[in-house]
């Protein structure tokens, strides 16, 4: 099965004018209320067009870190820069523009319950004011690719976990985000579907140049994307097993050949 047309085009010119770094965390700490910190001294840089896995045991702080990344949570300390701007000091009114450049697959999907699968996937486009005929075409295309053509008008509560997950992923990628953030995106699907979804992320990464970061506690998944860089969280502290974060890889590593250089 081919990729949706969304992914078969050349990279858009926008991606060529890429900043040196797309996300930069500096000494970030996060605590919920007065609890001890769930993230401490987290510093890392994400480069455009790279594919990252964020691993760690359950409770290590993966979701918390991604929440900082998709601007659902303010850090207790440290600084976060995205797309060349300091997020912490940016006015609130500028944050929707940041968010529209991100695609997020939430840990528990977070589909809008009163909207059909189709309307859920169309949501980012409609919020961005995309022309409705384009919305219809893109969403139909995407639904076909995730194998939900026959379920377009279904409400989330009538769908299986795997179906909901595919809707969530379709919604995350439909607006061709610059950064795709996925929290355990393969948790509810069979291994075959997991692989297929991973291939979608890879294609988005390879062909559109989207920076991808996937949180997972499934170590088998890591091997499935050879060019991926790995970040590991352990009790809220980040380690860097591949060295990828200390030695930034080339802006867009090509499979295999550049991986060795990246993980020196």
């Amino acid at each position: 099965m081919g990729f949706p047309r969304l992914l078969t085009a050349d990279k858009s010119p926008v991606m060529d004018a890429r900043p040196a770094e797309i996300v930069k965390f500096d000494n970030v700490g996060l605590r919920y209320g007065t609890d001890p910190e769930v993230l401490s001294d987290v510093s890392f840089t994400l480069f455009p067009g790279s594919f990252y896995f964020l691993t760690g045991a359950s409770g290590a702080g993966k979701t918390s870190l991604l929440k900082l990344l998709y601007l659902a949570q303010r850090p207790s300390r440290g600084s976060i820069r995205m797309f060349g701007k300091d997020v912490i000091t940016s006015p609130r009114s500028s944050l929707p523009d940041f968010r529209r450049r991100l695609g997020v697959v939430f840990q528990n999907f977070r589909l809008v319950q009163h909207l059909s699968a189709f309307d859920n996937v169309a949501l980012p486009l409609r919020l961005a004011g995309t022309d409705e005929t384009k919305v219809q075409r893109s969403v139909t295309d995407m639904m076909e690719w995730v194998g939900l053509s026959h379920r377009m008008q279904a409400l989330p509560q009538t769908m299986s976990g795997g179906e909901q997950q595919r809707v969530a992923i379709a919604r995350a990628v439909i607006a061709r985000p610059q950064v795709l953030i996925a929290d355990e995106p393969t948790g509810n699907v069979d291994p075959e579907m997991a692989l297929k979804l991973l291939r979608l992320f890879e294609a988005l990464n390879n062909r559109v140049g989207t920076t991808v970061i996937v949180a997972t506690h499934d170590v088998h998944l890591l091997k499935k994307v050879p060019e991926s860089l790995i970040m590991r969280l352990n009790k809220g502290r980040l380690s860097d097993p591949t060295g990828a974060l200390r030695y930034p890889p080339a802006p867009k590593p090509k499979p295999k050949t550049q991986k060795a250089g990246a993980s020196k």
């Binding site: 969304l6 085009a9 050349d10 858009s12 926008v14 409609r126 295309d141 607006a175 061709r176």
Partner: peptide
Amino acid sequence: MSTHPLLEEEGAGTPAAGSEPTRSA
């Protein structure tokens, strides 16, 4: 190969800042 409609325009993947959908949307 045909390109996806969203790719026909420059920067189509990054929606214009501050653009608002129509009321019906």
